[in-house]
Design a protein around this nucleic acid. Sequence first.
RNA 1: CAUGAGCAU
Length: 295
Amino acid sequence: FGFKKEMMEKGLVPDVFTYGTLVNGLCKGRRTKEAKELVGEMAQWGLSPGVVVYTALVDGFTREGKMEEVFETMREMEASGVQPNKLTYDNVIRGLSKMGRMEKACDLLKWMIKMGHMLDATSYTSLIEGHFKVGNKEQALHWFGEMKNNGVSPDVYTYSVMINGLCHCGGFKQAEHLLEEMFAEGLKPNEFVYSPLIAGHCRDGNVLLACETLDNMTKRDVFPDLHCYNSLINGLSKLGKMEEATKYLAQLQNRGHSPNEFTYGSLIHGYSKAGDMEKAELFFQEMLSRGIKPN
RNA sequence: CAUGAGCAU
């Protein structure tokens, strides 16, 4: 934004791309209020926002869950004769799904198909995630099947959402099955796929399987990131297996990660629950000394 | 110049 000022001082005129970049930056930083004002300002330069700028704005509002603003933006687009495209609608689907308005989200997706939009995994994945969010495993599975029927191949994002969703409703068996399916499809599972499995097995009380999962990913050349370790340490802490938990704490540090507030939160709760307040206090102090804020 | 995924209380 300093550059924008500088540009104007040098008499350079911002173009649609300048605004596009700025609007996008603001939207990513949860500053849609300012983004909207910026869009309003474009007219002063004789510029009118196109699909890209509007879509960035829609994206920003969906991130913040402001569906009313989304619809208002859509109306504004229509009023100024700008045609929304697939990306715009994808964002609306994601917004509706995030808000749990699944009937609307499904209707929109069906409508997109009818209108001949080429849907991809992104469109379906948002919808599937929404169904899991409202606890509707059946619909999630239904749309997972539907995307395949329509010739759209699930990608790593889709599988991570499916596996995460299934692990949250006790579908560990199906989750493991999908992991196999990924290999069969030639997809390489990443941290986003393994982490929910680890967390899920822990929640299930099956820490052994969780540890095995972490070891397996290492064997498959996927390096467990902090999320994976946190999931495991959290599971172990809840079961009071603090020796194991600290073992993985050491491993994570050996592999170049630094514990964060989640890691410490799990350890502190684990030790407190086990009645070892000294250790809990020790980790709390360590956390503070590393400049991590308690929450 | 613009879209999707995982961690504690």
